[in-house]
Design a protein around this nucleic acid. Structure first.
Lengths: 352, 352
DNA sequence: AGTTATGTTGTAAGCGCTTACAAAACGCGC
DNA sequence: GCGCGTTTTGTAAGCGCTTACAACATAACT
């Protein structure tokens, strides 16, 4: 009877926007037909469909997602939790993810974990409460509760930024360890023996850890014991890179090369060297990791590992949406991270 | 009767997660009580509340946002449409927005317009379909349909990145024009007379337009007719900045200063100058706009306009959430964009 | 024409929650 | 012990949509 009252008061409630039922009345059809026009237009005869569509336009009808989600059990929303949005390499991935999802009619619910697995868990719950149809996570290390929640809600998910054939979870990414090993080896091959590292913060960050470990392992394998004071960890800021480089340049045994856990730190290191009047690469070599656009443009251009950030976003969206629609699709995709040799690396200076 | 069937088959449907009703049964109370524990705990007696909370934990209950949104008419989701996520200055704003919203129990639905008002309109509709409780838009220029949809759905919104006292729309931002004028004046005061500009693309972008206009107006006021070939427009990429700078440096009347529409273009210009062996600022001055973290760290540090990107995100979240909760709050907030004089600007070279 | 397969539309029962309203329980003063 | 106001809890009617199922119309066969 409330509904009837609403009908009676229709003139009054002109602001409360049109519902599917209003469209149905306007077009002289049942609500089921309108719903079909919206969701499975092929099932509706041409003439009727046109009439309904006209009514939709006339009334400026906008579907009510919550009602639709409740009835159909899918929200057309996918969620993503990234460590931080404020990080060029993630944001390019998010951008591509959002665009691809939008092309499929999905919207993106975005959350950030601040590199904390506990926050990630909480954000995951918040996203789950919003009935996301799928979830994208960064990295392979997550709170077990995350997976159990996802499982009990039967929400498909995928870990990006990592590749692990043996993982029990779908993942789309590249081998963080391998690429870091390669770039270290490249420096060794150039003749560097004093190699320092400015790593990202490895706490609860499997990508940063993998990169750090790869460098350490490779140096060890080459018979170079990594000294503690030449391995630094810094948060994701250019200023932190500068700060760390400053510290490294004060060392008794000054490094001839600095490996950075990401491009932001590498740019900081580069700028610090420049500020101190050092020539890069003739005095000191610097390498980054990520492949930000700016890395290729800075003078001198930064040698780095280019990771497929855009591709990961696109593929993650496609994987999730396929899975949501019960279309089988490959659940593990290995992408390549490529060494981009540019201008910040060369043989170590003779004076060594 | 379907519901009854479900009850009977409960053992079978262990994967379909717990509903509020299940919690109610488990705790031996009505659904209303459970709902109250969730939404207005003060209304429930202590002992009962504890019992219900225990049941919630036992069953791993996660609220069903769509159902909740349908019944309560609020989704606890706020939307944001930015030109592109893949842009450091927007992503820092989004990050702060998302964090602040999350603190209030809201999640962020994110869309991008690709600097197209038409896409923006479409994304707006998509967000509206998801029943967002509020919307954040960048800039003051939007398709009229956007505002009418928002109005008919009665969804509060706010334009950020701009400040306009006379606007009919809520806005939180700064004066793009004024700050650009100031930085231009600063260059004039230093003695520069050959001033070029690398503007952002101004199409459907009121922020980029305002900045460009401010520069042109200021140059005009100083009696300097801006020459066409010294005013360039480029998209938001470091490489575009380099490219534009390259072109400007080829000019017969080489500029002694380059004003850039944003820091990314400015960095590109800086790198190009460095690559060509020019000394910045003694040979040529460069200024940016935005105040990215890297601008302060690059060598030489970039003179720029620091805009309150984080603050805009935070305040926008707060404004929207207050408005959603019917708490009156100031709907126009003027923030300051500050000139940061650093190392890429000085008097023009004598040789002029 | 009669029968069957196919295509098109309508009816109505939920989806899981909130909330107005009613009912019950409690506390207090007398 | 009663009446009253207050607090606490329950009942049940939706929120706006989708979709199984039924009903009907049409096309395709014998």
């Amino acid at each position: 009877m409330v509904k009837q009252l609403r009908e009676i008061l229709k003139i009054t409630r002109q602001n409360s926007s049109a519902r599917l039922e209003d469209v149905a009345h306007h077009a002289g059809v049942s609500t089921a037909t309108v719903s079909r026009v919206l969701n499975q237009p092929d099932l509706v005869r041409r003439t009727l469909r046109d009439r309904v569509e006209a009514s939709i336009n006339d009334l400026g009808y906008v579907a009510h997602g919550a009602a639709r989600a409740l009835a159909s059990r899918r929200s057309r929303i996918i969620g993503a939790i990234v460590p931080t949005i404020d990080n060029a390499i993630f944001s390019s991935s998010i951008q591509s993810l959002q665009k691809r999802a939008s092309e499929f009619g999905y919207t993106l619910l975005l959350a950030s974990s601040d590199y904390s697995l506990d926050r990630e868990k909480k954000e995951c719950q918040a996203l789950l409460e919003q009935n996301i149809d799928g979830l994208i996570l960064v990295g392979e290390e997550h709170d077990p509760a995350v997976f159990s929640m996802l499982k009990s809600k039967q929400v498909p998910y995928v870990n990006i930024w990592c590749y692990n054939e043996d993982s029990e979870h779908p993942n789309i990414g590249f081998d963080n360890y391998l690429a870091a090993k390669q770039i270290t080896q490249y420096l060794l091959d150039l003749g560097h023996r004093q190699i320092a590292m400015i790593a990202g913060v490895v706490t609860e960050n499997d990508r940063a850890s993998a990169r750090l470990n790869a460098v350490m392992d490779t140096l060890n394998d080459a018979g170079l014991a990594a000294e503690n004071d030449s391995i630094l960890q810094r948060d994701y800021q250019v200023s932190s890179g500068r700060d760390a480089a400053k510290q490294l340049l004060k060392l008794d045994k000054q490094p001839t090369a600095i490996i950075c856990g990401n491009d932001v730190l590498a740019l900081g290191a580069l700028f610090e060297c420049q500020a101190q009047g050092l020539k890069v690469p003739s005095d000191i070599s610097i390498v980054g990791y990520d492949g930000l656009e700016i890395a290729a443009q800075v003078t001198p251009a930064l040698t780095t590992v280019v990771i497929p950030s855009i591709q990961m976003g696109v593929l993650a969206a496609e994987f999730l949406i396929s899975t949501i629609n019960k279309k089988p699709i490959q659940s593990k995709i290995k992408l390549e991270a490529e060494l981009a040799i540019r201008e910040t690396t060369s043989k170590p200076p003779r004076t060594n």
